[in-house]
Amino acid sequence: MTNEELKVKLTELLPSVTFEEGGEWLNVVVEPAEWLAFAKQLKSDEALQFDFLFCLTCVDWKTHLTMVYHLRSTKLQHAVVVKAKLDRTKPEIETVSDTWRTAEFHEREVYEMFGVHFLHHPDLRLLILPAGWEGKNPMRKDFEDPVNMIKL
């Protein structure tokens, strides 16, 4: 399906979805609350079949955090980028680790780097950072580390 058909299909699935320009794939912005239901539909819907979550990450825009999910369908060979805005003070979003198993590790990495709390995640612990780094969120823009980071 091309981007336009996808746009029509997705607005039909979830009316409160908005679209963004830029990038080669269709950018869809979703409310964090509706994300889990929307994700399940994306995977199960016959016409979409987004079964491959190949990139899950988070971008810190200083005013808010944006969760970015890159999804591709191995069967129908089309892709979509779903974004969800979270506020910086208490970022929370539903986990999708049971729809796509790969999300479990990626979400743990985003949790320790950005502090986004994933609800109902099976094993939300530090994955890469050593013990004692809980809550330090090194990838945020306002992270201060006088020892390792040299301010030019």
């Binding site: 079964d51 491959f52 979550l53 191995t74 796509w100 198993r101």
Partner: peptide
Amino acid sequence: AEDVISYG
């Protein structure tokens, strides 16, 4: 095959 795709 499904697990491979699901695990990314």
